[in-house]
Amino acid sequence: MPEDGSTEVHIATKRIVDEFRQRGALTPESVVSAGFGQWDRVVPSWLILSALMSVVRARGEKGRSAAAQVPVDLTKTGLSHDEAALVVASLLGDVAGAWDVQARGLLTLQSMLGLFCAMADEDSLSPQQLDDLYEIGEEICRETVRSGDRIRPPVRGVEMGPWDASEEAAPRLDRVDLGGLRVPSSDGFELQPMYAGESILAVTVIQGPTAIQLQAFRSERAGSWEGIRQELLNRIRLLGGSASEWFGPVGVEIRAEVPVTDPAGRPARRRIKILGCDGPRWTLRGFVSGLGGEPDSTDDWAYETFTETVVVPDVWDGRDTTIALRWPQAERQ
């Protein structure tokens, strides 16, 4: 390893980026050394992709949409403005965008390098900041290679929740016992039940400007969140709203704008996120609204509440698929 601590792949990444920035293209030797499309070992193109994703996400956290992130100068990318916006959207987590990018072959070594260099220039990233991005990217890449699966998400029930009541891996937290759900509590939080007659079908958990409504369903079949997700997408669109699928911290989620009536009785639109996860014999769904429901929100409280919730599927009266709740019994779980 060189004296400055950089690895060979780190140095090769810097050389490739510098060459592309100066020439707008790479020599055949550099194209080969970039290793684009190789995911079984750490190569410069993988570091560049990781660095590009970091830059895109940092811009997104500042409230910049995919279209607003597109660099002014796209000459070196080989992309049109709409194509570049689609690539950026896919890097932000747009599921449909990711499929479109893949089908159209838009994420190439040239487009990736062109976008990264243009964004780095627009954001005036220093050489040290670029080195930091490469270093972080290399750590991520090496860890994914060690794991044996470059896209493996955390395993529900082992590494993350939502949890089943039978799973011993669930962290011991202060939770409110609602029968079918045990919901994590926190200072200043509020619970609001949703009734159907005398039965409680869902609970809304509120913390400051963010709320998440939790509802669990009994299911004996796998993949039920996928089916529920398609039903919700269709329903929202039929009601005049807009909805799309995105990769989020807990898997594929829905981001939507739904028609509502404001306090003055005027038509308005509300932005929400809909989370979902399948467990053994159940599906948990969460409607996130308020600050956390905004597409560019960095408020992770709703995700944390969702993943730390425990589902008790045996609390079920057998009449329909909804796991009923009771109100409430606070205890340490």
Rank of each mutant, 00 (worst) to 15 (best):
V9T: 12
V56A: 02
V101H: 15
A268S: 12
E245C: 09
S224A: 04
A211S: 08
V176P: 02
R175F: 03
W39R: 05
A165C: 07
P209G: 01
R104A: 14
V310L: 14
D174C: 02
N234G: 10
T283W: 04
M194C: 08
R266S: 12
V88D: 05
T309E: 05
T27K: 08
V315W: 15
T321F: 15
T309Q: 00
V312D: 05
S297I: 04
P153R: 07
L92A: 06
M53Q: 10
V70T: 10
G5W: 09
P2G: 00
L115H: 06
L49K: 08
E3G: 04
P328V: 09
R221Y: 13
V145E: 02
T210W: 14
L214G: 00
L201W: 14
S219T: 03
Q329T: 13
L47G: 00
E135Q: 08
R237K: 10
S30Q: 01
R332Y: 13
D4W: 11
A302T: 06
E138N: 08
L232E: 04
R156P: 15
R221L: 14
G37F: 11
A211N: 10
V288S: 01
S45H: 03
S54C: 00
T204Y: 02
E3D: 03
E138C: 10
A25V: 12
R319E: 13
S90I: 08
Q207V: 08
G318M: 12
A118M: 05
E231W: 13
M194P: 04
E253L: 08
E257Q: 14
T27V: 03
W282L: 07
D82L: 11
P263M: 11
V101M: 11
T77G: 03
N234F: 15
W46Y: 10
T13A: 05
E245K: 08
S166V: 14
F20M: 09
F116L: 08
D82C: 02
P209Q: 05
W316F: 10
Q22K: 14
R285P: 00
T210Y: 15
R172S: 07
A268K: 06
I200D: 05
M160I: 12
M112S: 07
G97K: 10
G114R: 00
S30R: 03
W316M: 11
S289D: 13
Q38Y: 11
E83A: 07
Q333W: 15
I140P: 00
R59W: 14
P2H: 14
Q129H: 01
R235C: 05
E226A: 03
I206L: 11
A51C: 02
F217M: 02
W163G: 00
F36N: 01
R269W: 13
R255E: 13
E331W: 15
A120H: 02
